[in-house]
Design a protein around this nucleic acid. Structure first.
Lengths: 109, 109
DNA sequence: TGACGTAATGTCATATGTGACATAACGTGA
DNA sequence: TCACGTTATGTCACATATGACATTACGTCA
C-alpha cells in the first residue's frame, strides 16, 4: 500500500490496516478488502503500463473516467465485478487475475 | 460444468459455452463469466466438504438459503462480491481464491 | 405412500452500484 | 504565469443486487 491511500480509504469508512494491524474488520471482511485492493492496484498497473488514460479505459468499459478513478482508488462504491471487467478489458487472463489476488507476490513490477 | 447447469444459465440470458464453443460473448465477457463460475463451484465444493447446509452458510453470511442456492448456481443476479464473501465465510484464504480462479487446475476434488 | 431435511426457483421492497456530469486538483511544458 | 491533459472527488437519477419470503422439487428413510 502506497501510504496516503490508507487515509483515503479510512476517510471513506473502511478502516484498512494493511495486514492485521488496525483491526476493526473480521478476518472475512479484511480478506475481501485486501482482495479488492489487490485487484484495484492491478488495474492501475496494467493501465499505466499500457499507456492508457483513465478516459480511454472508461470508453472500453462503456463507463466514465470518474468511475475508473474510483476503481483504481478502491472506492467502496465500486463492485468487484466492475474491477474484474476492467482487468479483462485490459487484456488480463484468469491466471493474471489469480496472480493479482495471490498473496506474497512481489508488491510491484 | 456439470451439464444442465449450462441450460439454466442460458435460460437466464447468459449464453455460457464452457470454453470457446457457443460463443456469443466477447473474450472479456466470457472471462468474467468463467471466473464467476469457477468461484461458484468453489463455494459449493467447500461448503459440502464441510458438511454445511445452504441455510447454515446463509446464516454466517447474514443472507438467506435461497441466495446461497443462487450463489452456487452462478445466477446472474448474484454479484462476485457476494460469492467472494461466501468463500471467505467458508474459511478460504486469498490464495484459495486465486487457485479457484486459476485455469487448468484439476476440475474437481 | 408420507414425512422430513435440503436445495431450487420466483417475486418483491429496499439497498447498493452505476454512468454521467460538474468541478477541483494535479503535473508539466511554454 | 497560463494552458492542457490527466486524475480525483462529489452528486444524482436510474439500474442492479440484496435478503426475505413463499413455494416447489429433490432425495431418502420409514
Amino acid at each position: 500500500m502506497k501510504k496516503g491511500k490508507r487515509a483515503r480509504l479510512e476517510a471513506h469508512g473502511w478502516r484498512v490496516g494493511n495486514a492485521a494491524d488496525f483491526l476493526e474488520l473480521s478476518a472475512e471482511e479484511s480478506a475481501l478488502v485486501e482482495t479488492k485492493l489487490a485487484l484495484s492496484e492491478s488495474v492501475r498497473e496494467r493501465r499505466s503500463k499500457q499507456g492508457l488514460s483513465q478516459a480511454e479505459l472508461a470508453k472500453r468499459l462503456k463507463s466514465s473516467q470518474s468511475r475508473v478513478a474510483k476503481i483504481e482508488a478502491a472506492d467502496p462504491s465500486v463492485s468487484t465485478d466492475l474491477v474484474l471487467r476492467a482487468l479483462f478489458a485490459l487484456g488480463a487472463t484468469r491466471n493474471d487475475v489469480a496472480s493479482a489476488i495471490r498473496k506474497g507476490r512481489p508488491v510491484a513490477a
